[in-house]
Write a protein that binds this DNA or RNA. Structure first.
Length: 315
DNA sequence: TACTCGTGGTG
DNA sequence: TCACCAAGAGT
């Protein structure tokens, strides 16, 4: 049970200071300008575990190409996955595709404007449902993302980092801190996220630029070290790395890739189209069982299909 | 609950 | 350099 330090600061004061800071310093992101609810939803899905700088150009392309859910729902899955490019976690693209289909079928092509209906969409969890309800529809909802969790952990609790997994106590705290006024609550959610993303960062927080340095429980406690060791994310040699390399090959290919090509570096050179990506795959020196697992996993997840002609993106 | 699922910038 | 990290969701 972590020791919780009382902030001993009236929430209203935090609201005023952080919201003012946000209005002066908010980054000019395209989905923060006049933007459809669909645009907000797309941005939130893309931003799941993917930095803003990589999302922005792809988001611009997507909204120009598929300005409404119905446009997107009508696109072939293969095109969706190619357009997703290297954002990572391509299952998100398929889930957004499925969500668009549901929006067309069950919501007359309009993004639902409330938390429960948003939460029911594929790929939309508690964070994304709350974020879209707030940022697209101005609703007062408790938004809890990794940035907000970290700001709360430091500013209010006095710890260097939040717990490894989201706890009920954190959601309760976020709800307790939420301004009563709808518009102010929307601003607050965006402002705390921004503070965590720009100032109160995970590794090297810019405390010298923080608008609430004086009120920070973590600073008051002498900036204690984290009480646990953050768990690493192994990558080299993992199945995930192989899956990613195979997906890169399939995205580059305009026709099915025979399984032999995935092994034969010499044959691969005759296919200029996919040669670079195949080269990267071969460079991994993947063991046969590992490649088999990766391929099977991609098929199970609907990211790839296997026909007589070989592996290809789903139709 | 703990694990899986991509990708690339960066301190 | 290399481990960490990023507007999480699903199982």
């Amino acid at each position: 049970m972590p020791v919780t330090a009382s902030p001993n600061v009236p929430p209203a004061e935090l609201h005023k200071v952080i919201n003012s800071w946000f209005q002066e310093n908010a980054r000019d992101l395209p989905w923060r300008r006049s933007c459809s609810a669909w645009g907000i939803l797309v941005s939130e899905i893309m931003l799941q575990q993917t930095p803003v700088v990589r999302v922005q150009p792809v988001w611009e392309q997507w909204l120009a190409r598929w300005p409404a859910p119905a446009d997107f729902a009508a696109a072939p899955a293969a095109e969706v996955l190619r357009a997703w490019g290297k954002l990572g976690y391509p299952r998100r693209a398929l889930r957004l595709h499925a969500a668009a289909a549901e929006i067309v079928e069950k919501h007359r092509g309009t993004v639902p404007d409330n938390y429960p209906e948003l939460l029911a969409l594929p790929g939309v969890g508690t964070y994304t449902a709350a974020a879209v309800a707030a940022f697209a529809f101005g609703r007062r909802t408790t938004v809890v993302d990794t940035n907000i969790r970290r700001v709360h952990a430091r500013l209010v609790i006095g710890q260097a980092l939040p717990a490894p997994a989201l706890t009920a106590a954190e959601t309760t705290l976020a709800t307790d801190l939420l301004p009563e006024d709808d518009a102010e609550s929307v601003l607050w959610n965006a402002a705390v996220m921004e503070l965590g993303a720009v100032i109160c960062t995970a590794r090297s927080p810019k405390c010298g630029q923080c608008p609430v340095l004086e009120q920070c429980a973590w600073i008051a406690a002498g900036q204690p070290e984290p009480t646990y060791i953050p768990k690493g994310q192994p990558w080299a040699g993992t199945d995930r790395q192989v899956r990613g390399a195979v997906m890169a090959v399939l995205r580059a290919a305009s026709s099915p890739i025979h399984a032999d090509l995935l092994w034969d570096a010499e044959a691969a050179k005759r296919h200029a189209e996919v040669a670079p990506e195949l080269g990267k795959l071969h460079k991994l020196n993947t063991h046969a069982p590992q490649l088999e697992r990766a391929l099977a996993g991609l098929v199970v997840d609907g990211l790839a299909q296997l026909t007589d002609a070989g592996y290809h993106l789903p139709n």
